[in-house]
Each structure stands twice: as structure tokens, then as C-alpha cells.
Design a protein around this nucleic acid. Structure first.
Lengths: 220, 220
DNA sequence: AATAACCCGGGGATTTTTCCCGTGCCCGTT
DNA sequence: AACGGGCACGGGAAAAATCCCCGGGTTATT
């Protein structure tokens, strides 16, 4: 098999050099170009031959790896991308994957992991590890019933009803919610306050974000 | 390495036998049990040793593979599952994966694909191919692209950025958003106003609901 | 040159939200 | 009988959000 061309994008030259040495020892791979920023890569896109794989550091100053992936996706120039990351939350990983990323690897992974990632991407186009699988399952309500239940447990019936009104399409003000719930504004004030305290929320906007983020709405 | 125990669930005995022969030729795998329905497998669950892998046909009379996966997931008895399918829509695949399925394979796949699927699942726990990748990407984009795109078209770049800040976890006040965007509060006032007008929104709360309802956040 | 669309910003007013202070009732537990 | 939690209610005040007024600039299109 011919040598595969790999491009590295990372702001640290030390990391790039370390990776290059490691990668070229692992198999028929050649690191043919390195860039210290997403912009540098994008600038070079039209003039360089398309690599077989682009390895992107997620945490870079200026344009983050995430932004870079989005820009590549929106360009006409599809790339096979492997993400290098220290640790990242599930949401980011899911979004990256949906933007066409082919795999994720922790920066502190073993050489064996790196090798299997490279081999897998070259063979099947993708590298799939528990990192991603876990994230995807966390993405759905079904995966985190415990967290949701734990939140719901801490809500009294009136507080749940209050939250339902807060997230109502009609965008009720507290005064109107008070009317709907047949209590005084001051009482509604109380519901808000206790929920703020319980979950470290600071604003009505935060309440909406909280409910939707934890997908509580259907349970209220 | 020891032989891996594989269980087949498919309503066609011919398919099962063909698979068994093929699988046992491909590597250190033994098909230790076969079932012609999901129910038969569920009945046997408590009494048989847990297999290393369960291969499930998606299209079965009676209980479908999908139902079976859900039941397994809701039982206490987790299984490593590979799905065999003729062709299936993206939604089903996504749901299956989120229910813990480790891989998908077309029924008419090559022996090489089957082998790499088995090897990959045994090695990393997952098998990942373009089949799934495509589905996941379709999941977000095909959801309601027309409606969402139509909304996005009506937003200027600054308005999108503004919306991103409005829905930020930190619950920024407009004053803080103005700081982040490097403009005056009055300018932010303008972004809000125009968005309110465009989409008949009445409050900051409404903005959050709007963004999340139409799943705009990832696109901003 | 005119028009439109986007971007930017100051002053001021009203409403809403947020946060204090307090009160009391009911109910189940201890 | 005392206690805590949930529920309900009130006054007042600071902060934020909302809604007006008004002006300016750039850029692309016509």
C-alpha cells in the first residue's frame, strides 16, 4: 500500500513534531504538512494536494478546532478529519461528529490507540471508540434518566407547574403566570426564588435553558 | 485469544446457517446459539451464558429487531449487539444506536465487511461505518432543513451571534452581551428589536424558546 | 444620486425581573 | 408541642428588559 498523506494542525510545534515522529513510525504514513492554526490550513487548502487525513487539535487559540471543522464543512472541500482533544463535553463531540469528523482521540492516548485510529480511518473511513459512543448515548433523554429524575425529585408540584408556564409559548410574564396559577405575584416570586437557589440559576432565561437542556418539559 | 461466543437471531434458518459458517471461517468465533425470534432469545437470556456478541436481524415477524433491542436495553442484561439489516431509514438506525447497538451491517455486505465488523466490535466494542455516519448527519440536517434554513436566512450574522449569546449557559444580561460583542447596549437593543419583529417574539425568554424549538443553536 | 439593508449608538421612559424585608397557614414528623 | 417544608401573601427597591425617540456610518444595488 502506498504511503498515506497526513496533515497536522496544532498550535504547538512540539506536539506536531512529536506526533509526526510517532505517526511515521506506526505505519505507512507521511506527515506531509503542518499548520499552527486553522487559518493557515484554510489558506493552503486550494494549493496543496488533498491529504488522506487531517488531524486537528481542538483547543487552539484564535480559531478553535470546532470552528475550523465548521468552515471546512461549509467549504466545498471535504476533508477526512480526526480530532485531537484533551477532554471535551459530549455536546461538542456530537456536534463535531455531525459536522463530518471521522474520529476522536484523547491527546494522552497510547500509541496503540493512535495506530488503530489511523488504521481504522484509512480502512473504513471512521474511527469509533467508546468516547463517541458514550457521548451519543448521553445525548438522548433515554440515556440520562437518573439525572432528570434527580432534578424532578427536587421540584414540588407547584414548582413544576410554574416551570411549565415559564416555558410556555405565550411568553407569560410572572404577573400572568400568577393569574394562570391563581396565586399572587409574590407567591410566584417564591417559586422562582427556590428554584434559583436549588439549581444555581440566575434568570428567567436561565430557567428556560435549564428546562430544555435537561429535557424536563415533557415531565412537568 | 480465546474463541468468542456469538449468538444469532434471525427468523430464517438458512440465513442463520449461512452466517454461522461464514463467521466461524472468519476468525476465532463460535456461534454458540441461534434463535428464530426475539422472544426465544429473551426467554433463554437468564439461563445461557452471556455471549460476546449478539447479531440481530432487524426485520423479523412478530417482535422486530428494534423492539428486541429496546427490551434488552430495558432489562438489566446488557448485550453487545450488531444489527443486520437489508436497508433501513436513518431514524431507525439512530434510535437503535442510541439504544446501545454497537454496529450495523447490510445483509448483502461482503465477507470482509463482516470480518472487520466482528473484529472491530471485539477490539473496541464498536463497529463504525459510513452507514451510521451518514444517518447521524442526516438526523440533524434533514430534520427540518427547509424551515430552519428559512429562519436562518432572515438572520444577519450579528443577529446570529447575538442569539448565541442569549442562549449561552452563563445567562448573560444584554449589558454583558454588549461587552462580549464589543458594541454598545443600544446596538444590542437593536438586534433584539429586529428579531422580535421578524418572528413575533416578545421577550428574552421567547428568544431562547425560539432558538431551541427550531434547533437553531448549532447553526448560529 | 437614490434606495435599501445592515451596522452602530445616545437619551429617556415604562415595565418586568430580581431580590430584599416581613407575615401566616397547613401538615406530617419527631 | 415543637419543628420543618411547602404554600401563600405583602411592601419596597434595585437591576434588567423592553420600548420609544433620535442620529450616524458603510456597502451594494439600481
Amino acid at each position: 500500500m502506498e504511503n498515506r498523506n497526513i496533515v497536522l494542525i496544532d498550535d504547538h510545534v512540539i506536539v506536531r513534531n512529536g506526533l509526526k515522529e510517532l505517526i511515521e513510525k506506526l505505519g505507512p504514513y507521511s506527515v506531509t504538512a503542518q499548520f499552527d492554526s486553522g487559518n493557515a490550513f484554510l489558506d493552503a487548502l486550494p494549493i496543496q494536494p488533498k491529504p488522506d487525513l487531517v488531524i486537528v487539535d481542538l483547543n487552539m487559540p484564535g480559531m478553535s478546532g470546532f470552528e475550523l471543522v465548521e468552515k471546512i464543512k461549509n467549504s466545498e472541500n471535504e476533508q477526512v478529519i480526526l480530532i485531537l482533544t484533551l477532554d471535551s463535553d459530549e455536546q461538542t463531540i456530537i456536534r463535531l461528529f455531525r459536522n463530518g469528523v471521522r474520529g476522536f482521540l484523547k491527546k494522552n492516548c497510547s500509541a496503540e490507540s493512535l495506530k488503530s485510529a489511523l488504521d481504522s480511518i484509512m480502512a473504513t473511513g471512521y474511527y469509533h471508540n467508546e468516547f463517541l459512543a458514550l457521548s451519543l448515548r448521553l445525548d438522548t433523554q433515554a440515556a440520562k434518566p437518573s439525572e432528570r429524575d434527580q432534578i424532578l425529585m427536587q421540584l414540588t408540584p407547584r414548582e413544576r407547574e410554574f416551570l411549565k408556564w415559564v416555558c410556555h409559548e405565550e411568553e407569560y410574564a410572572y404577573k400572568q403566570i400568577a393569574e394562570q396559577m391563581q396565586v399572587s405575584e409574590r407567591t410566584v416570586d417564591g417559586y422562582r426564588e427556590t428554584i434559583f437557589d436549588k439549581f444555581a440559576i440566575k434568570s428567567k432565561t436561565g430557567l428556560v435553558l435549564f428546562v430544555l437542556k435537561h429535557q424536563l418539559f415533557d415531565e412537568l
